[in-house]
Design a protein around this nucleic acid. Sequence first.
DNA 1: GCATGCTACCTTGTAACGCAAGGTAGCATG
DNA 2: CATGCTACCTTGCGTTACAAGGTAGCATGC
Lengths: 112, 112
Amino acid sequence: MKAKNTISQMRRGILEFCIISLLADHEVYTAELIDRLKAANLLVTDGTLYPLLSRLQKSDILQYRWEESESGPPRKYYSLTDEGREVLAELDLSWQEINGSVEQIRRGNKSE
Amino acid sequence: MKAKNTISQMRRGILEFCIISLLADHEVYTAELIDRLKAANLLVTDGTLYPLLSRLQKSDILQYRWEESESGPPRKYYSLTDEGREVLAELDLSWQEINGSVEQIRRGNKSE
DNA sequence: GCATGCTACCTTGTAACGCAAGGTAGCATG
DNA sequence: CATGCTACCTTGCGTTACAAGGTAGCATGC
């Protein structure tokens, strides 16, 4: 399956977008986030996620608060900042544009 | 514009897919390819493209032939191999799946 | 109250990749 | 034959995903 590499690149590219989208309405902690991404067919490990979340937090897109768990160590619940919401809006737009680009290219093939 | 980085990541992810798509029906050489990508709002430099094309060629997805130019040095015209066409079909599918994932995530936000 | 296990956090090392910058060489033009 | 343009390609850098490994809180069983 030669396309594998390319496919994972495509997935990767939208990972950040999906994470920001998922955080838009719900606080979540890392394990939950992984589950939700998995549900949308986007596999990630926590080793990928922690640095990414921490990067987004340093950029003021995400914030977190500690919450104690009923069964285990405390969890970091992440949510979007106001700035994060603005970023999400930009990303939504860009995503549509990119979609348009791909559409255009794929259509081009067929007609010509 | 905090989203910039994320946006370029998204673009990057689909770059290979777009290139393969663009080559599906037309032989093109690098400068043409860049123009066509630019027309679809995907900016790339040739320093990005050459290694990428060469990688795809080594994976038997692309092939090339030399053609002399009427005005300047000879050009490498790239086209898809049969295997490249199979890969393109896979990529088409994956792209639709990924689109579905993103749709699902974005829809999820709004309803919940 | 100590050992074991689970959960959640985080870090480190590696490999891939895009991109900017720089380099080589064919070919045309004055 | 010198200058410039076009086309090819390489190098070095920074970023990133991912696998693997590490720390520590908390619960459970003895």
